[in-house]
Amino acid sequence: MMSLLPPSLVAVIPRCLQSVRQPVPAGLIALRLGELPIGRIHPMRQALLREVWPELLPQDGALVWDATSLNVEARSDRIGAVALALRERGAITGWRGERYAFEHPVDDPCTARGEVLFRLERAAFRCLGLMSRAVHVNGFLPGARLVCGRRAMSKATDPGRLDNLAAGGLTADEDLVACARRELLEEAGVPAAISAAIESRGALRSTRMEPEGLHDEVLHVYSLRLPAGFAPSNGDGEVSEFLTLDLESLAQRLAAGEFSHDAAAVSAFGLQHPQALADLRA
């Protein structure tokens, strides 16, 4: 498949994939639920966390929350209260009023899911270095063209940068495919009759440090072949415009860093998939 892509695109794909495979910096403090590692915290946040979360105790170089005896709802309520306290102190910004599910860690979260341990406001995940999940959809028009959205300047993360056709975090208890189809409708105006044809292209994990904390997210990649003449239309105010890019234009914009890290990696990842040729021949 790679031999069918223009050399400029082949050259930039490894860099796009590497941008979301950044090693976790040394010096972060492990956050544990009992003996279970669940997150990583910047040491500068340790004092504030212990102030708003007094049962969080230092142990063997980690911060330990002894909440294994609590059920999922009780854990969710307690850590939710901690997140609210951090928000009041300005340590968490971009509050969305949406909860993600935090899962019991598994060996390969790109291919397996763990049981839900608690549900928490999505804006708190980076602060605590917790792993979340998101869906991204590469949209293809006939003639080997990708449809990309530009993130609105009002977005809390990566404002103004290019994105995939649709993308969004997986909210607690939401099905992956249902999430992808919801985002397609809200962000790009893709009706159910068209979004029913989405196909999974696997998943990759994205890790890097951001000002809010450790970004750790599994990106579930989907592909959608759009009918000729389809014109996306944003309905939730999160996309300022859509661009239709041929492969050379895509390569130039990827190389110039115009895409968000995750969207660039998802574009590259999708073009490496064995079914990419069928996508490009949409």
Rank of each mutant, 00 (worst) to 15 (best):
A196H: 06
L128Y: 01
L184F: 09
D246R: 05
S69P: 02
V190M: 04
G80P: 02
P274N: 10
L31F: 07
L70A: 11
P6E: 13
C127A: 13
A228S: 15
D246N: 15
A156T: 13
G160H: 05
E241D: 15
D158C: 08
L226G: 07
F230W: 08
R205P: 04
D216I: 05
E55F: 02
G39A: 09
H220G: 00
A11I: 09
P142M: 10
E98Q: 15
V218P: 05
R225W: 05
A144H: 07
A81T: 03
A156I: 03
P58K: 08
E183K: 05
V218R: 06
V52W: 04
V64I: 09
A30M: 11
A167R: 00
S267I: 10
Q46T: 12
P6L: 07
V24S: 04
G129C: 07
L128A: 01
F125I: 01
H261A: 12
V24Q: 15
Q46Y: 03
L56Q: 03
R225L: 02
Y100C: 10
W95G: 01
A91I: 02
A178K: 08
G257H: 12
A251W: 11
E186L: 14
E238L: 15
S223L: 01
L277R: 15
S3I: 14
F230Y: 13
R126P: 14
E187N: 05
T244V: 11
E248C: 13
T207C: 15
E241C: 03
L56E: 01
P54Q: 10
Y222P: 00
I38C: 08
A26D: 13
E248Q: 12
N138P: 02
P105N: 15
S260K: 04
I194P: 11
S240P: 13
L28V: 11
V12F: 12
H273Q: 07
P14G: 14
S69I: 08
S200Q: 05
T157M: 11
R161P: 08
R21S: 15
V266D: 00
L280V: 07
